[in-house]
Amino acid sequence: MADAPTPVMFAIVTTKKDSVSGGMAPIFIAEDEQERERIAMWLTRITNAIVHDLHNGTFILTVNQGG
């Protein structure tokens, strides 16, 4: 179903490693915001995951299951 997606956490990209921990998704720690954006963009281009900005220094990448 393309129009009723079920997002699943795929990866976490952060500059503040203390603000995230554990879980099912791998955590990528970036030096600064530029690197964070670069990593996030690469991951989305490679895996088709969607980038979301949590505005606390962390990007999350989700994939739509079955989409």
């Binding site: 954006e37 996030a40 963009m41 989305t44 969607i50 980038v51 979301h52 900005d53």
Partner: peptide
């Protein structure tokens, strides 16, 4: 809005995380 929420007029569409 709020840096990354995409709006079409008054309707919130989605969250676009990548500045590009």
């Amino acid at each position: 809005d709020k840096g990354s929420l995409l709006y079409a007029g008054e309707v919130m569409m989605m969250e676009v995380g990548l500045p590009h």
